[in-house]
Design a protein around this nucleic acid. Structure first.
Length: 366
DNA sequence: AACAATCTCAACCGCATACCT
DNA sequence: TAGGTATGCGGTTGAGATTGT
C-alpha cells in the first residue's frame, strides 16, 4: 500500500464514455464464455478498448442479468433509509440487502431522492432553527428517536445488530412512518435485462442459477460458462416490458452463446452498426464489402453462428410485421446481414427506440 | 418555440483493501 | 514482512432529459 501506484490502464489508449451496443454485446459474450476472473486482462482478451475497471463497472451496474431496474418500491426505499441510518454511506452493504439493486443505483437514489425527502421531513419535524437539519439525513445522523422501521429481516437484522455491536452508535435510527410516498421515477428506458416492477421480481425469479444472488459482488460469473448454464445470455427474462412492446415467447432453458473469437466479421459488423448509430453515418455508406464479409462468414457455415443467429431471431421475436420502426430497420439490416439475422438499428435516438433489438432494449438511449 | 434551470444516472476517479509473491 | 497488483468502494462529474419560464 501507499507507494506510487501504476495507473490501472493507459488512459490514452482506452475508450471512455458511454458504451456502445457492440461493446456491451462483446463484454457480455466474453463473460458468458470465459467468466471474469481477471478484469484487468478482460478488455484485451475480449477485444475491447476499455479499461478493466470500466468493464467491471459496466457489467456490475448494467449488464448483469440480475440487475433490477425501474422504480424503487416503497419497501426498498424504506429499507435503504433504514440501512443508511445504521450503515451510513456503505452503498455496497446496503445493496447487498436489495437483490438486483446496485450500489451505484442506490447511491444515486439516495442522493437525488431520499436525501431530499428526509430533509423535507426533517424540516417538518424540526422547523427552522434546528441545526440537525442537513446532517440528520446523512450518515452522521443525529435524529432523536429510536423507532426503526421493521421491514428488515433475517440477515438484515443480523447486520444491523452487527453494526450496533461494532459501535456505530453515532447513527441513530429515524422515524420512518411519515416518509411520503416515493415519487415514482421514470422507468429507465434503457433496458438490457428484464424490467419488472420491484415486487414482481423476486431474487429467485431472476434466473435459475442466480437464485442466491443478492448483490453485485455476489454474482459469480467468474466461473466458465459450463458452470453457469442458463445464467448469462440466457435471454429468457431478457425482455423489456416497455409499454408499447409485447413480450415474446421465451424458451425455458436455452443458453445463448454468441460467437466470440470465432467470427470477427460479426464483431466488425456490430462495430460498424454502432459507429453508424453514434456517428450518424448514412447507412448507404456502410461499405458493401462489410456486409458481404459478414455474409460470407455466415455462409461459410459457422454452425455455431447459425445456431446463435437463428436463436436470436426466434428469441427476439424479430418479426418483420412488428411495426414501422422495425420495418425500417429491417430493410436496413437486410442490407448488412443474411436473411435470418435482423438487428434493429436506431436511426435517430429520439425517433426510434434506441438500443433495442426487437423487444429487447440493448443499450441506453443517448 | 426558445432558453434556462434542475434533475437523473452512467461513468469516471482515486483511495482502501485484499491478495499474491 | 514488505512490496506490488487487482479489485472493490464511495465520491464526484457531466451529458442528456425533463421541467419551468
Amino acid at each position: 500500500m501507499g507507494k506510487g501506484r501504476a495507473p490501472c490502464c493507459d488512459k490514452s489508449r482506452v475508450k471512455r464514455g458511454p458504451w456502445s451496443p457492440a461493446e456491451d454485446l462483446r463484454l457480455i459474450t466474453f463473460i458468458q464464455k470465459h467468466g471474469h476472473e481477471n478484469w484487468r486482462a478482460l478488455p484485451k482478451q475480449a477485444g475491447l478498448l476499455r479499461c478493466g475497471k470500466s468493464c467491471r463497472l459496466r457489467w456490475i451496474n448494467y449488464l448483469r442479468p440480475d440487475v433490477k431496474r425501474g422504480n424503487f418500491s416503497k419497501e426498498e426505499e424504506d429499507t435503504i433509509i433504514m440501512l443508511h441510518q445504521t450503515l451510513g454511506n456503505k452503498w455496497s452493504k446496503i445493496a447487498s440487502h436489495l437483490p438486483g439493486r446496485t450500489d451505484n443505483e442506490i447511491k444515486n437514489v439516495w442522493n437525488t431522492n431520499l436525501k431530499k425527502k428526509l430533509a423535507v421531513k426533517d424540516d417538518e419535524e424540526h422547523p427552522k432553527g434546528d441545526e440537525s437539519k442537513e446532517s440528520s439525513s446523512t450518515s452522521s445522523s443525529s435524529s432523536s428517536t429510536s423507532t426503526i422501521v421493521s421491514s428488515g429481516k433475517g440477515t438484515l437484522e443480523m447486520e444491523l445488530d452487527e453494526q450496533k455491536n461494532q459501535g456505530s452508535s453515532t447513527k441513530k435510527p429515524r422515524i420512518l412512518e411519515n416518509v411520503q410516498d416515493s415519487t415514482p421515477r421514470e422507468v429507465s428506458n434503457h433496458q438490457f435485462w428484464p424490467t419488472k416492477k420491484p415486487n414482481e421480481l423476486s431474487s429467485s425469479s431472476i434466473s435459475s442459477n442466480n437464485s442466491n444472488i443478492t448483490n453485485s459482488s455476489q454474482v459469480d460469473v467468474s466461473k466458465p460458462e459450463d458452470d453457469r448454464k442458463g445464467s448469462l445470455l440466457n435471454i429468457r427474462g431478457l425482455y423489456d416490458v416497455h409499454s408499447s412492446l409485447e413480450e415474446v415467447n421465451k424458451p425455458e432453458e436455452i443458453g445463448v452463446e454468441i460467437p466470440l473469437e470465432s467470427d470477427y466479421d460479426f464483431w466488425n459488423m456490430l462495430d460498424s452498426l454502432s459507429s453508424f448509430q453514434s456517428g450518424g453515418i448514412q447507412l448507404q455508406n456502410v461499405e458493401a464489402g462489410q456486409s458481404s464479409k459478414f455474409g460470407d462468414a455466415y455462409n461459410n457455415g459457422e454452425v455455431e453462428n447459425k445456431k446463435w443467429l437463428r436463436y436470436l431471431e426466434n428469441e427476439l421475436g424479430l418479426d418483420a410485421t412488428k411495426d414501422e420502426t422495425h420495418n425500417l430497420s429491417k430493410n436496413v439490416a437486410e442490407t448488412l446481414v443474411p436473411e435470418n439475422f435482423q438487428y434493429e438499428i436506431p436511426l435517430k435516438p429520439a425517433e426510434v427506440h434506441p438500443g433495442t433489438i426487437g423487444n429487447f432494449h440493448l443499450w441506453p438511449s443517448l
